[in-house]
Design a protein around this nucleic acid. Structure first.
Lengths: 125, 125
DNA sequence: CTGTATCCTCGCCGATACTG
DNA sequence: CAGTATCGGCGAGGATACAG
């Protein structure tokens, strides 16, 4: 699904593990299959193919095959895919600005939960 | 994870199924547990509790218990939680503007795949 | 009303090996 | 190089029942 989408809940692959990163990798231009594997450290060819196929299906990327040997395939963001860069930038800005706060809150919460002297509202006394 | 976050991959519950919707439900003010169940059609109490606990842990919502009978519990966005409204709005705008395009692309792709006369690049002839 | 406690399903994702 | 084919784990999330 697409994060923040309240009223519809279609199976749009944006909240999955890789789509967002792939979009950013393609931001500056077309990339080959093996080029994408580098920044997406650890992704298996199977999963990369699955994700790219889904993005192609949704009109977010184009897949261009060059009749060469060895074979070369390039993936590129479509205009529609490029429209996703804006909301994704907003999300990245949020992360840069507020992720430390969130992590602090999380740590404070853990301390509260494990501190027997100052338990705020322990649900497991 | 938080969608669009390339460089970090922390377990932030925003790309999950319900967190985004809950944030929007709390946008206009505090809501009770049972009030949240209405717009989040079909969510089970177990999952709603899990999601709210995770959000509380991350400092996105506060949980206030009123010593009444019957019991009343209200959830409200924290200032940190409210900072998420901006990127989420950007995401919602994208969906309103471009989701139809994506759905059209998907339908066109399916037709190409199933049409034996005009196969663009069938991977399964 | 506001949760807990179990059990279970389903599909994302990874590991590995193989192919044109 | 750019995939496909299989197998399998694991965890999010749902169904159901029960409790304070």
């Amino acid at each position: 699904m697409f994060v923040g989408c309240t009223h519809v809940a279609p199976p749009i692959r944006i909240g999955d593990k890789w789509t967002g990163k792939i979009i950013r990798c393609l931001e500056t231009g077309p990339r080959r299959f093996s080029e994408l594997q580098i920044p997406l450290a650890g992704i298996t060819p199977k999963v990369l193919t699955e994700t790219l196929r889904a993005m192609e299906r949704d009109g977010l990327v184009t897949r261009t095959v060059y009749a060469e040997i060895p074979p070369r395939v390039e993936y590129e963001l479509t205009p529609l895919g490029r429209t996703l860069l804006k909301p994704m930038a907003a999300c990245c800005e949020w992360t840069e600005a507020h992720l430390p706060n969130l992590l602090d809150a999380r740590e404070a919460y853990e301390h509260r939960a494990s501190d027997p002297l100052q338990p705020a509202q322990p649900h497991k006394p």
